[in-house]
Computed example of a mutant assay.
Amino acid sequence: MKDSNTIKDGDFCKVTDGTHKGKSGIATDLNMSITGHLTITMVQESGVRFKT
């Protein structure tokens, strides 16, 4: 069974909190920061990219 909190490159995701709340797109460029936070570049259907 897949953990519902596991995300991988290419998954469709919706942001549920923070600055980009309500935006969605394809997750790309997943990186673990030095402080231990996961950063994700999201690509919206329109082609616009944002980091979250």
Rank of each mutant, 00 (worst) to 15 (best):
M1H: 15
M1F: 12
K2L: 14
K2N: 10
K2D: 14
D3T: 02
D3C: 11
S4R: 14
S4P: 11
N5W: 12
N5L: 14
N5S: 10
N5F: 13
T6P: 05
T6Y: 14
T6L: 14
I7F: 09
I7A: 01
I7R: 11
K8H: 12
K8W: 12
D9P: 01
D9I: 12
G10C: 03
G10H: 08
D11A: 06
D11H: 08
D11G: 05
D11P: 04
F12K: 12
F12N: 13
F12R: 13
C13P: 02
C13Y: 04
K14R: 15
V15E: 10
T16R: 12
T16C: 08
D17Y: 10
G18R: 09
G18N: 10
G18V: 07
T19P: 03
T19C: 03
T19R: 15
K21T: 06
G22C: 01
K23R: 15
K23V: 01
K23I: 01
K23D: 13
K23P: 04
K23Q: 15
S24N: 09
S24H: 09
S24I: 00
G25W: 04
G25Q: 04
I26E: 07
I26P: 02
I26T: 11
A27H: 03
A27G: 04
A27K: 00
D29V: 04
L30E: 06
L30T: 05
L30N: 08
L30R: 14
N31R: 14
N31A: 11
N31S: 11
S33C: 03
S33A: 07
S33F: 03
S33D: 10
S33L: 06
I34A: 10
I34E: 15
I34L: 12
G36T: 00
H37G: 11
H37I: 04
H37Q: 14
H37W: 10
H37P: 01
L38V: 11
T39N: 13
I40H: 02
I40A: 08
T41K: 14
M42T: 00
M42I: 05
V43P: 00
V43T: 09
Q44L: 09
Q44Y: 05
Q44C: 05
E45C: 02
S46I: 00
S46E: 07
S46Q: 08
G47N: 06
V48I: 07
V48R: 15
R49N: 10
R49H: 12
R49M: 13
F50E: 03
F50Y: 06
K51R: 15
K51P: 00
T52Y: 13
T52G: 07
T52P: 02
